[in-house]
Design a protein around this nucleic acid. Sequence first.
DNA 1: CCTGTCACG
DNA 2: GACGTACGTGACAGGG
Length: 935
Amino acid sequence: MTQFGKGCHLHLIDGSAFIFRAYHALPPLTRKSDGLPIGAVSGFCNMLQKYVEDSSGPDAPTHVAVIFDKGSHTFRNDLYDLYKANREAMPEDLRPQIPLTRTATLAFNIACKELEGYEADDIIATLTCQAREAGGRVTIISSDKDLMQLVGDGVEMLDAMKNKRIDRDGVFEKFGVFPERVVDVQALAGDSVDNVPGAPGIGIKTAALLINDFGSLEELLDRAGEIKQPKRRQTLIEKREQIELSKRLVQLDCETPLDFSLDDLEVRDPDPEVLLGFLTEMEFRTLTKRVADKFGKDAPVLPEAAPAAAGAEAGAAPEMPAIDPAGYAWVKTAEELAPWIAEAQQRGWVAVDTETTGLNEMACDLVGISLCITPGKACYIPLAHRAVATDDLFGSDELAEGQMPMQDALDLLKPLLEDPAVMKIGQNMKYDAKIFARYGIGITPIDDTMLMSYAMHGGLHGHGMDTLSERYLSHTPIPIKSLLGSGKNQITFDRVPVEDAVKYAAEDADITLRLWTIFKPQLHQVHVTRVYEGLERPLVPVLAEMEMTGVQVDRDTLSRMSNAFSQKMAQLEAEIHDLAGESFNVGSPKQLGEILFDKMGLEGGKKGKTGAYATGADVLEDLATEHELPARVLDWRQLSKLKSTYTDALQEHINKETGRVHTSYVIAGANTGRLASTDPNLQNIPVRSEEGRRIREAFVAPEGKTIVSLDYSQIELRILAHMAGIDALKEAFREGQDIHAMTASEMFNVPMEEMTPEIRRQAKAINFGVIYGISGFGLARNLRIPRGEAQAFIDRYFERFPGIKTYMDETVAFAKEHKRVETLFGRIIHTPEISASGPRAGFAKRAAINAPIQGTAADIIRRAMVRMPGAIAEIPAKMLLQVHDELIFEVDQGAEDDLIAAARSVMEGAAEPVVKLDVPLVVDAGRGKSWAEAH
DNA sequence: CCTGTCACG
DNA sequence: GACGTACGTGACAGGG
């Protein structure tokens, strides 16, 4: 045994932090065989495994221990009975998992230490002091700021989450003092999480200032009389005892009586039998396999789960072979393709993936197709790969060897892809469906693993294939960059050698199929089958159709506007330079800030975290009342935005073949269930300003057609009225009243006849604020009124509509209990951050309040869109665009009334029959030759 | 690649 | 005068 000393490196892992992070990061998983809650243990083991993998190499620890808290009563409670009194009770499903995390640690053969009556922090402190005295190094793996007292002199912290090391400078950044004085700052600032009182009204910033001025807390308290600010002086004198108590509470104990020594913590290799035994007992399929692979052993056989219950544990795949390119075939001929088609037909499903020359489905070509029916066994059918030329840099235009004619392959595949009895499985099927559509194939029926994940895991993580593969298959797919390169040397997929393409493309189909086998049975368990089958999957063909149709955009209109903007901008720029007395880049916020606040010396310059002055519109608007220059800059910025983002960029997006603009909707992008529009984004075409609105004049109907726009009136407020059950609001909506005026009348006791636009405006801001999870600060900023006044408005609002407050509180409570919120249609939005501390808690809370409202509205318009094609089938009209609460159509002249009647009926009735709203949904309609006229 | 800014619902 | 704050998006320009 080596004696701990110089050259040794001790790792101390904050076990409780690991547990809580694991618990909050994962859905509530249970062990399949007996339903034992196991999510936190699973996450804990994954984190330990990752730690073990990451901590090899030259900087590897020689000694390591995981330290836990034990018991709820510590010596600090004897000092102060309210210590940690406001901690929430441990969740019911976490409690039984705690002992298992000890077992897990031991199974990894890592020392596992705890001590009754002491917090983990104290044990960590004691060990750190011992190690430091012995001349060794220490890394504390935790993000707990209390432990920052220990940093320095060979001791560092490692935030495993952010993979960020924290040294003395890092501590200074956080606390404004070096580690020796962190206790002093904490004693003053207190800690709301641990219920350490501190000095009221003093936070970390002020505390650091004081400590740096006086040198130490004791010095500060002795000489408190010298402090200039009367309030602060009084606090420090009056609360001296409380501050001293706080210091004793935050001071870590380096004298914890330990019954073991550093030498007992020496790193040991795990015993494969023990570790695999434990993992198998927990029924962690993926991790068991991964660890078994590491040891070069076969994974122990797990009890076979019934297919319907498969995957109750994260990543719990049904038995599947390893992902291995050896199982991937290169299909070269029709004869080789035939058995794949036959097997798909016989099994009733096939995973399909297309490879193309680019990401724009409307302007790229098919290069190959991959298929997979059984995990581990997949094929790639190359169709348009170019021969790799040896003599020139640009490659050849010749087709590569070993490919069947594209049309032959498509002719063979078409019956399969259109066979109603064979499920086609894809990842982001809208993409493949659009490609196939261009080759005359209407792929149906489909399942989409991206959308399955979105329905089940919305809010937890992204739903791209790489994310899903890593999370649920513990496998990193071959990066496309490894084939295509990046930057200007990037090649297109048809230039990839077929041998490489087979491995990549077949793997994609294999992964997709594996994800499907895991997800499919889970949809039902998580109760999102209706969401997936009613709101996500059926939207794929509808959106594909809309995107392929595109919208006509008039290039000349845009081009003329661009020129006009250029001229006006040049003029403004000259004026701005004149006013500044020098030439600079108006488009650079950095340079602008320096001109405004350094050179011109204007008041109100505030630097952000990067050290640059803020020059946002709100800042400039304040300055504009006094000065010419900021006012000009605002005008310039507006034009610059319109030109670069709209009049110029939109022209680039006009498709050469169709002459129209084809956006792409992201179905699984927004947390709330909304769509997002990209390349180009047609959901943020200007409308609020007069100049901007003119951009919409360029969105036109072709000869003989009309643009029709239908939009939901106040849909989110209506949903709020329904969900929160506010009778006054419901009544107002039923009677078709002006809802903001009614709110104003109710709040400010102004009769409706005497309503002024100003009072109504304020009420409108409050109504919107409520939807966003109102705060005094936010409302104050929006209305540009003092914060106290804004808070008074809010208090008044809650007084008049107590149901709203109840709704908000109940929604947050639900989110805290279930780590998710739901829409009226059962869409789940996970809220993993809801129990976070600090500013993130506020964010999460407001997002949780907003999500059911915004999400229900999103569900409703999705339902309308899914039904729309059937409802307007007999009308010569096409749905073109969706803008969250608005649908835009193109219709033959003369059929406008029919379309409006049919579409309005679908939209107004979209919630039914699943949800019967207590308020009517009202749809406004407009028509014209352009979007500007129709809106 | 990140940040600030600004366009929309 | 603890902190930082309305919700949800995407695109562009500047700057490292």
